[in-house]
Design a protein around this nucleic acid. Structure first.
Lengths: 197, 197
DNA sequence: GTCACTGTACCGAATGTTCGGTATATTAAT
DNA sequence: ATTAATATACCGAACATTCGGTACAGTGAC
């Protein structure tokens, strides 16, 4: 392969930042060109099908990050469940810049998203959900309880992002993540035990 | 005033539906014209400043609904707090069509929203929050606890909307609202008492 | 007739997209 | 090593379309 002035990875990162902050329609080719450093026609060389190709690449890029940084450590690592969950929270805080940045699962699913994109986003959500369920059960939670908490956790993530963006309160997201960190694995059926701080 | 082919109220409702489902950039004048039944020039007669005027009208329209249907009953009615909260949940379910419809607070606050709109949306959030705090305290909750729960409730509302849209699971929103209905006014400091079902 | 309203026709600007062409790197043959 | 040929990466300029917005001529109720 010939020399690319802009690497695939950093290109996807640049595009990601635009799409996550402005959404599909808000991410114009002019902006994407400006941010990536590639002219519009060059973007079409990299993504022959245009904007749709770019969104797809961004979603796959983020999906890969989600799996390697969040999901796999959650299920593969041999650490204590509490420890794994704490680490995940830290990663999540980083990923969303403590709540200052949006989530693709929200912004790209608004309006009239393409079916293919919708499916990819849905799959990412489900994968994350399943990983959280697995962790919950590993920590001794009842299967049903684990699922309820996992769903609720992901709802809190999305909701906290929306509310923080709405209020400009810098601590909303972090505060709620800390709350989850302390309560997510609490077992209601067994005598309450210490949770890692 | 002369006869309006389309009433202010239903006009705002039509515009509302478009903006809530497609967002600011996604709501093109063509669509707005088609949905309202008014040609572009007529829309500009009604909203001289164009699209921005329309969004503002829609936000004010919804804001008015929020206050009369949700906030005022919450603080003015002399009913039991539990009863008032239950009624609010019913109204909320209606307003979001059991989670099938988006919230302006989310969709209009994405991208690069106009400062004026951002302020209006922020105010609506705050008003709702304050009303919930008042209700919580009225029900005997500690001031701090009331505020935490109010914030968390509104986070759940937004998060559940995002997740339901993401998964197409029709019961997500309703289920979470039911959970809130049962737990929101639970008093952790006083002996647990019966909650209206 | 007046006046609030609506429809037709139109505008410049911006949108996403395509195309012709150049520069550079890679490969193959000599 | 020198060529020639090919493939890749990029760009400038134009493409057709749609965008938000305007000008102006009806239209109908009073």
């Amino acid at each position: 392969m010939a020399l690319q002035t802009i690497e695939d990875h950093s290109l996807a990162e640049s595009l990601f930042e635009v799409f996550r902050s402005r959404g599909y329609e808000g991410a114009t080719l002019s902006i994407l060109s400006e941010v990536t450093g590639l002219k519009k026609s060059s973007l079409y060389h990299r993504f022959p099908a245009g904007k749709d190709d770019m969104v797809k690449a961004v979603v796959l890029h983020v999906s890969s990050q989600l799996h390697t940084q969040i999901i796999e450590p959650l299920i593969n690592s041999k650490e204590q469940p509490e420890k794994k969950f704490s680490k995940m929270i830290a990663t999540v805080n980083m990923f969303y810049s403590d709540g200052r940045k949006n989530c693709l699962l929200n912004i790209l699913n608004l309006g009239e998203p393409k079916a293919e994109i919708k499916e990819l986003l849905n799959k990412d959500y489900t994968d994350w959900l399943v990983a959280l369920c697995t962790l919950g059960e590993e920590a001794g939670l009842d299967k049903k309880v684990a699922k309820e908490r996992a769903e609720r956790f992901l709802i809190i993530v999305q909701g906290a992002l929306v509310i923080q963006r709405l209020t400009n309160n810098k601590s909303t997201f972090k505060k709620n993540m800390k709350y989850e960190e302390k309560s997510f694995l609490n077992n209601p059926h067994i005598k309450k035990r210490a949770i890692a701080n």
